[in-house]
Design a protein around this nucleic acid. Structure first.
Length: 209
DNA sequence: GCCAACGTTGGC
DNA sequence: GCCAACGTTGGC
């Protein structure tokens, strides 16, 4: 899910449960969906800073003790066209690159937990761009909260590969043993621990398993 | 607050 | 396109 629309991000703060919002991808038809408001996030400044109510869960990453400003994220988006209430939700990493400043607004997130994670993000934190609901699901690139393209992964890290590591790590206690992609199945915006993030980056240098 | 019906996510 | 997982809604 997700989407993004480049400039138009209203910045409005979200109220709450929002019924649907759609992405407006880059090229998309924009307008109509607009009646609703979007969850969002923005670029300029404020995006995230508020942790007001961050969700209770998630221990480690967040609640921190004060300092730690580096959290990592994984954000899902659908790279293939699909209509949802008449609006194409497609928004691939190529679409992100095509945005002005290679920056987009991440909207379309309805799930409360995912929304809380969006609010907990801080500018400049890094996030993996994950392609979901498509022929080859997996991590394709890196971006920073803003949301701006940083770079493509040196190689595609497929869901299948991540799953293989997740399974073996459950047995060995490896870094991906609790990865949210597998333990919190439907979350479109999820936190990664430093260990998870580093391990996944290290996979770029290895042969696809 | 419980829980059944319903809707969505997203892999396959 | 199918369907499992699981979140959300709403009656009671």
């Amino acid at each position: 899910m997700l989407g993004a629309s480049a400039q138009r991000c209203p910045l409005q703060r979200e109220t709450m449960p929002r019924p649907r919002k759609r992405p407006t991808g880059a090229a998309g038809p924009e307008k109509k969906g607009q009646s609703e408001k979007r969850t969002k996030f923005e670029n300029s400044g404020e995006a995230s800073a508020k942790v007001e109510n961050s969700s209770p869960q998630n221990t480690s990453v967040f609640k921190n003790c004060g300092k730690k400003l580096s959290n990592y994220w994984l954000m899902k988006s659908e790279p293939e066209s699909r209509l949802d209430k008449g609006i194409d939700v497609k928004f691939s990493i190529e679409d992100l690159k095509a945005q002005p400043m290679q920056t987009a607004c991440w909207d379309g997130v309805r799930n409360y937990q995912a929304r809380n994670f969006l609010r907990a993000m801080k500018l400049e934190e890094e996030a993996f761009f994950y392609h979901s609901n498509c022929k080859e699901p997996g991590i394709v690139g890196l971006m920073k909260v803003d949301v701006q393209f940083i770079r493509m992964m040196k190689r595609f890290i497929s869901l299948a590969e991540l799953k293989t590591y997740h399974q073996s790590h459950k047995a060995t206690g490896g870094p991906l043993k609790n990865m949210a992609l597998f333990t919190r199945q439907r979350l479109s915006v999820q936190p990664l621990t430093q260990e998870e993030f580093d391990f996944i980056l290290s996979l770029e240098e290895k042969e696809p398993s």
